[in-house]
């Protein structure tokens, strides 16, 4: 369920998803820009954290990436629904795996489990996947590597259409 976010919340959160102004009183600068009080902006910022709207409020550093150069999306066919929990957990247990999910399959796409596998090289990632297949007995699998990056960004939640939509919702409520 989408949370009740007022147009005012969207304006404040749009500021918080940018970088804070580099000043001794950053929340006052935001408040001045939005025509609000410093106390109110601080109170709302805390409230968004308590409501888990954001995961973290802090500094993001450059070069946070560890030395993983290759990552592949391992996709695994587990036709029997009853096996997926057990095999999903088994695949997730590998330290080279950061994410493991079940997703729907469809005609022409026989895979049910997805794992992101990390390593220094593609060969290393493929070798880990081969070992995972041997260990689990999953026969049909593939590893997809990205060959071209068209877009990679972090979500700008409040600058585009979601903000417009919250504004409309605000209108509708009045």
């Amino acid at each position: 369920m989408k949370k009740e976010i007022t147009p005012e919340d969207a304006r404040i959160m749009a500021e918080l998803q940018r970088s804070l102004p580099m000043s001794l009183r950053p929340y006052k600068d935001i408040a001045d820009k939005l025509g609000l009080t410093e106390d109110y902006v601080i109170q709302k910022t805390r409230e968004y954290g308590e409501k888990k709207y954001y995961r973290r409020f802090g500094a993001t550093l450059r070069h946070q990436k560890a030395g993983f150069k290759a990552n592949g999306m391992g996709v695994w066919s587990v036709p029997d629904e009853a096996d997926r929990q057990r095999l999903g957990e088994a695949l997730a247990a590998y330290p080279e795996v950061s994410h493991a999910y079940e997703r729907p399959s469809f005609e022409g796409w026989p895979f049910h489990l997805f794992t992101m596998i990390h390593g220094q090289t593609e060969e290393e990632v493929r070798a880990v996947a081969a070992k995972m297949a041997r260990d689990t007995g999953i026969r049909e699998y593939d590893v997809l590597f990205s060959t071209r990056e068209f877009k990679k960004t972090s979500m700008q939640y409040f600058d585009h259409w979601p903000a417009a939509e919250t504004a409309e919702q605000g209108e509708a409520r009045r």
Partner: peptide
């Protein structure tokens, strides 16, 4: 430091 701010969460926002 690249940025200081909130890392919003799609699930937390109910999206």
């Amino acid at each position: 430091i690249r940025r200081i701010g909130a890392s919003f969460d799609s699930r937390g926002l109910g999206w």
